[in-house]
Amino acid sequence: MRGVIDREQVLHVARLARLRLSEEEVERMASELSGILDHVDRIAELDLDEVEPTSHVVSLENVLRPDEPRPSWPREVVLEQAPDPEDGAFRVPSPQAE
């Protein structure tokens, strides 16, 4: 099943990513992703058992910040960008129906 991603997987992944896809997007996505994964799957042939994964190229450790308060942002500045501000807060549709 690797390398080929079907319609159902596309829909599942789209839900995980909170993306609504149109019918044609689903079809196109399935074939495009399959094509890309087919190329990517070449790394499956490599012998990597003894190889450590790299998640950082920098060799730093313990980069920390002193526990000193910095002024927070004026609420009006913060809410200026909000799509639906209300009572000094960010209003969102209720998750209940989710």
Partner: peptide, 24 residues
């Protein structure tokens, strides 16, 4: 009960007006 949040310099607070202790 640190003075500031885990990853930014905003002061911790309890029971205050909403969104007075936020930053980008």
């Amino acid at each position: 009960s640190t003075r500031t949040k885990m990853f930014c310099g905003c002061a911790l607070s309890f029971g205050e007006e909403p969104n007075l202790h936020t930053c980008p």
